[in-house]
Design a protein around this nucleic acid. Structure first.
Lengths: 187, 187
DNA sequence: TGAAACAAACCGACTGGTTGGTATGTTGTG
DNA sequence: CACAACATACCAACCAGTCGGTTTGTTTCA
């Protein structure tokens, strides 16, 4: 009656709409805003329709998280490609990702809503797997203890921004970023 | 009938029990385990009794968080008292707190459940206020950019442990800790 | 070709369960 | 007695998930 019932069937589009809508809700409204009803509404579909595409709410969220991880992985690769120096190249890409204004980066106005990510078990698991895999993969260039500290500092800066959600928690974010990158410049 | 109704009235004790029980539930079961019913049950009181002490669930949680912050603040002071050197003394105390096996420290078996903290708005606010206050207070000894990076790295290590919840995410936690402390040793 | 037969996409109403919160009664205590 | 400290019984809201049915798309076969 409303829309999707007598419009042309386009399952792939609807699935994409559901994923994007769920991500948008999480980004703009945080963890509690992602209800099955809200996602369905936002995608112009009913709850029944949503459950036709995803067997459970968690399955939907998992798919969203998977999407995000693929993007992150690609951006890391891209950043590393543009890096001339070998030593610490993954760490520098990691810093860039952390401080970006896209996705959930420190520069994004939606960092604060990244709490939704940290709460999700599937994200935790995927992040853990992804990180350990990357660290093993770049062991030759990024295993130095100092580089680990730099990456952890980037994580810490990110978390601080997420928790405090205050632009002025750091006096100078850009200076901090440059300082971290600077610490990756010597073998 | 059960217990509290015909036992001696002791409001302060009950209030304490409610706070401790809420904290215990959060630590052992995470965010979603803290329901009003569960807290009341754990304290041997009914839901009505709980709402006699706290006007809302959030008020209860706020009180728990306040408790935790007071403890943290005290432990920081205590650690700083035992520090002979001026330069970086707050940062070292901060590291010690982060890596402790008490509360939600990295060494605690319940770190993973600290997600409950990061989700709570009141904790975020209090943490933000507390941290900025401390940083201003120890500006003379701990304002160095390198010390900031060290503190952020401690934060990052903590977050990594919370998210990954895997004992072996770091090869050697103690070595990392010593390395961080080492970076606080020069003016 | 065309229509019957089947499958996929989607609707909309409903359910069982849980939650925070309230209204009102009962007991202990100063 | 009066009031604080509880218990009991309830409510309204919300939420994930189900189910029977309807619409659209595709395949089969005469």
């Amino acid at each position: 009656m409303t829309s999707a019932h007598n419009r042309k069937k386009q399952p792939e589009l609807v699935r994409r709409l559901l994923l994007d809508c769920a991500a948008k809700l999480a980004i703009e409204g945080g963890f509690s805003a992602v209800t099955v009803q809200a996602v369905a509404d936002g995608a112009g579909v009913t709850k029944g329709g949503l459950f036709h595409h995803f067997p459970s709410k968690q399955a939907l969220i998992d798919a969203v998280v998977q999407d995000l991880m693929v993007q992150i992985d690609a951006e890391i690769d891209q950043a590393m490609d543009q890096d001339k120096q070998d030593y610490g190249c993954f760490t520098r890409a990691y810093i860039e990702l952390t401080f970006t204004d896209r996705h959930y980066g420190i520069g994004s106005p939606h960092v604060g809503k990244a709490q939704a990510l940290m709460v999700d078990r599937e994200f935790n698991r995927m992040w853990s797997v992804w990180l350990t895999g990357r660290l093993r993969r770049h062991a030759e260039t990024d295993a130095d203890p100092m580089l680990e500290i730099v990456r952890l500092a980037a994580d810490g800066a990110w978390m601080t921004r997420v928790i405090c959600d205050d632009h002025e928690i750091f006096q100078d974010v850009e200076a901090l970023r440059r300082r971290l990158v600077g610490l990756t410049r010597r073998p």
